[in-house]
Amino acid sequence: GPEHARLAARAAAAGVADRVRLLGPVAHDDLSRWFAAADVMALASSSEGLANAWVESLACGTPIVITDVGGARDVVRDDAAGRIVARDPAAVARAISDLLTHPPARDAVRAHALRFTWDANAAALHAHLAGLVHLHQAAGG
């Protein structure tokens, strides 16, 4: 994107250009390969619902570092899934370093994605909507 040149220059200035890849857009079919190759996935969103990227990363066995937005606490329930941090570069860096130093087992990470299935999501949505109908009916609606 438009920040590519600036980011490449920062990586070069920091002496890490040989270890940083600025991929740009990645085809959906290739995402799992990249997630699985990573040691940690970080996404410092300022606003989010429940990001597919979080669950996709976990499904590939890669722990996540995310900010406390949207459904973050529904996804990261313990340290095997990753870390929830303040939207602050130092906090993100500390969490990444912690996961690199003490990586959870890939199978333990993958287990956190198992409950995010179409059937589970449909059942949860049905239960939520049924509860709303019940509340409406109880209120005389």
Rank of each mutant, 00 (worst) to 15 (best):
H4I: 08
R6I: 06
R10C: 13
A12S: 13
A14D: 01
G15N: 08
V16C: 00
D18L: 07
V20M: 09
G24Q: 07
P25F: 11
P25N: 09
A27S: 12
A27V: 08
S32W: 08
W34V: 15
W34R: 14
D39F: 07
M41H: 14
A44V: 05
S45Y: 09
S45I: 09
S47I: 07
A51L: 07
W54F: 12
A59C: 03
A59K: 01
C60G: 03
T62E: 08
P63L: 03
P63K: 01
T67Y: 02
V69M: 13
D74K: 09
D78G: 02
G82L: 02
G82N: 01
A90Q: 13
V92N: 02
L100R: 04
P104E: 06
A105C: 10
D107Q: 05
V109G: 00
V109P: 00
R110N: 01
A111W: 11
A111N: 09
A111K: 12
H112V: 07
H112Q: 07
H112L: 06
R115V: 13
F116H: 11
N121K: 12
N121W: 11
L125V: 11
A127N: 09
L129S: 04
L129D: 04
G131N: 01
V133S: 06
L135T: 14
L135V: 12
H136F: 12
H136R: 15
A138I: 06
A138K: 12
A138H: 12
